[in-house]
Design a protein around this nucleic acid. Sequence first.
RNA 1: GGCGCUGUAGCUCAGUUGGUUUAGAGCGCCGCCCUGUCACGGCGGAGGUCGUGGGUUCGAGCCCCAUCAGCGUCGCCA
Length: 585
Amino acid sequence: MDKVRTSCGALRAPDEGRRAELCGWINRRRDHGGLIFVDLRDRDGVTQIVFDPQNANFRDAEHLRHEDVLKVRGNVRRRPAGTENVRLATGEVEVAVAELEILNRSAVPPFQVNADDTVDENLRLEYRYLDLRRNRMQENLRVRHRIVKAMRDFFDAREFVEIETPMLIKSTPEGARDYLVPSRVHPGTFYALPQSPQMLKQILMVAGFGRYMQIARCMRDEDQRADRQPEFTQLDVEMSFCTEDDVLETMESCMRYVWKTVLGLELAAFPRLSHEEAIAKYGLDKPDLRFGLELSDAGFIFEDTEFVVFRSALEAGGAVVALRYPGGASLSRRDFDALTEAAREFGAKGMVWLALGSDGVKSSAAKFLSDANVVALRAAAGAETGDAILLFADPRPELAYAVAGKMRNEVGQRCGMRDPSQYAFCWVTGFPYLEVDEATGKPAPAHHPFTAPAHGQWDLIDTDPQKMRAQHYDMVLNGYELGSGSIRNHVAEFQRKVFKRLGLSDEQIEDRFGFFIEALTYGAPPHGGMALGVDRLVMLACGETSIRDVIAFPKNQAFRDVMMDAPSTVPEQSLRDLGLRIVTP
RNA sequence: GGCGCUGUAGCUCAGUUGGUUUAGAGCGCCGCCCUGUCACGGCGGAGGUCGUGGGUUCGAGCCCCAUCAGCGUCGCCA
């Protein structure tokens, strides 16, 4: 057979005798003096190539180094018996190099490309092209591609249309801060980059597309935080004439399809929890259902307690919440101190613990706990001898539950119950419509102001808005909020009322949202949808713990691109063109 | 923005109570040897303002203060 260009992962025993041409990078070289082996790597795998001393190219091969780029031609031959490498797909064969072409040399890399060692992340980001050359990142980005392709295939089969929405839109300063882009053509005015295509996709429903999806890039100028990027990707979906169930069914089926095609896993039906139930059992609106450890209300046990911390919390309308720690009786005081410290970081004022040892009960609040208290607590928490019980009290019940919920995750982690290869999806539904903003004391939408209230509750916006529930739902995976969605307002007048309730003046409503409310007046169909965080989804599917490891070119924690060095200053002339002047703080 | 942790060779890290010579190891890098390795092996070598600035001390990689950077965490994220 003639020479055939092939990948470095393709050759097998039956290819023996073929002439092959390979291109790739030097993954490793093993120089035996009289014989040189090189592992040649490309996107597809690794093939061993051999330089024999009688060959004219042997002298050149002696000077080859890691990451040099080669093109080689030669015969495929079986390796001598006993020297096959079972750990390599191509391990039965090798290529005896007849012709060597060095396509490019590589400088010595700042870290080893051929190993998945730990490397300082900023160094990885500075030399991202070398980092992306490594196995782990190659694999992650290929999984990401397959997930996104599966999403598109799924929605295509259901007759959704992918429609691109603009990146340069109008600033509507509600919620997150906008990234602004100055207009040169209209000095003194600005575009905003989309925080999400929310209003545009709703307008596409008004336009009659009926089923829309987009793999959409979103930008939010928020403060930096560990697992946040200034730009991120969403699977954005919107449908007309649909109910909440329709959206949930669609998105759940999509996840099932993605997991099946990409990971080969069958997902069970997603449990549905009401917001109330999620808080009561798990303390959080994003419960990790890979493990049980449900919380329990212990307030009734301490109604008459002498313990001032509990009593004052309860008298102020607060709560005492109990969390079982399986096997926790064997923890040391030091361990309990560490847990208490963790609870403080989560916003607790403190934590009371009980260790239910076989030799008796120890507790940080022993002198305040009667025997009857302990018996009742064991029953309430479902704890047995050998366990510990952790108690969290706060005058604000939602805070007591939130802390207990975060500690539940902590305990689950310590007990090894958060297996990253397990995928526990669920839905949380029936969120409150409004919540009170702690900073401003004003009502704020629990989701966003385009959400519709629960059936029959439209009038409550005038009479008792705090009682309203929203047709709003979250998809949760392993304790992460993957995304949320809602059935939307499609009635212009109600939409206007919502904005007023949120404290906007008529002028503000007109200026910021006038075009949108007007669109609703022209026969807007009932509609709803959802957006899922693709970065986070891919992260969990890859078993990674940082979204940066599933994004090709992420910013670092300070939101800098350390490879390109962005953001950066611009020439004075560029500023003048835009009518901008920098005011140094 | 608050808090915590980290910063020592190209990379990943060790470095005792503040004092033993020239601050170490593994990998990488350079040179020599090696014909069946695959994390090849053997021998030798280069490589360090201990993040930066100040302070305490007879003496600082180690203690103190400031600062910078990175990571983590909380606030924030309609």
